[in-house]
């Protein structure tokens, strides 16, 4: 098996007296899609926020490409190439697609925007992801559908050659056709060598795209399995805590 790009060893996080993560191990591989599932309150968001540098872990080890790193701020995560696409998308409706994709990292030339260069890079990124649903990169985001917005948010995350993209419930608010579009996009991301971590409640989606499934239950990683070696029923069992995983490969 390849070397994991991200490896968490025994990470812990507590809020006051509440232990949210109780020594969690987690791995993600380049070019692979790892689904992170678990019931509400299992600690999925906390695990992700630690990786994003938004809420640093209290303890445990984070290995990036095999070497220990510290993620104390979003900037640390960004420097390593870890990008997060949040559930509520975080796009500005009043700006166009290019402006959103480059927000906070605009290309300048002589102190002013080099719009041509930004437009070109944005269009190229969308093209690499084979996005066909967007008519013009100069469309305002307010005119886009939910699926198109999700597409832009994901494209934004890979614009600067991200190595790890974390997607928080990317299909939660989408219709059937749009969900299919976004899942196809997620697959293309992985095909390009990006390590994708996807949080989802929708097991149908998870089984469609994920290479690995990691299940959190009350702050503990109760199962980390290859999608091909498990089934819907088992995963639901792990999520609800009625089944325990007894495999050998973790």
């Amino acid at each position: 098996m390849d070397m994991p790009i991200i490896e968490l060893k025994g990470v812990v996080k507590s809020f006051g007296p509440v232990d949210v993560l109780k020594g969690v191990n987690f791995t993600a591989y380049p070019g692979k899609i790892t689904a992170l599932v678990g019931d509400n309150g299992a600690g999925k968001s906390t695990l992700i926020k630690g990786l994003a540098g938004v809420q640093p872990y209290d303890g445990g080890e984070v290995l990036f490409n095999g070497s220990p790193v510290h993620l104390h701020s979003p900037r640390d995560a960004g420097a390593l190439g870890i990008e997060v696409v949040y559930q509520d998308l975080a796009l500005c409706d009043n700006l166009d697609i290019v402006q959103n994709m480059f927000l906070g990292r605009e290309e300048l030339s002589a102190g002013t925007f080099d719009e041509g260069r930004m437009e070109r890079e944005a269009a190229e990124t969308l093209r690499q992801l084979s996005v066909r649903t967007v008519k013009s990169v100069r469309q305002k985001v307010s005119s886009l559908s939910g699926g198109q917005r999700q597409t832009v948010a994901i494209a934004r995350s890979v614009l600067k050659k991200a190595k790890v993209v974390i997607l928080d419930e990317p299909t939660a608010a989408l219709g059937v056709a749009q969900t299919a579009q976004v899942l196809a996009l997620v697959k293309r991301l992985a095909e390009q060598g990006v390590s994708v971590i996807i949080i989802s409640h929708n097991l149908v989606d998870v089984f469609e795209v994920a290479d690995y499934i990691s299940v959190l239950y009350l702050g503990q990683m109760v199962a980390s399995v290859k999608t091909s070696e498990t089934n819907n029923e088992d995963v639901i069992g792990y999520i609800t805590g009625v089944k325990t995983y007894e495999g050998t490969s973790a």
Binding site: D88, L89, A90, L91, C92, N94, L95, L103, T112, F113
Partner: peptide
């Protein structure tokens, strides 16, 4: 044409998105 101006629009459009973008 400058970051300051663009960020004014961004904050006015979605302050949280702007914050997450740095």
């Amino acid at each position: 044409r400058t970051k300051f101006g663009r960020y004014i629009y961004a904050v006015g459009g979605n302050a949280e998105a702007a914050r997450r973008s740095g």
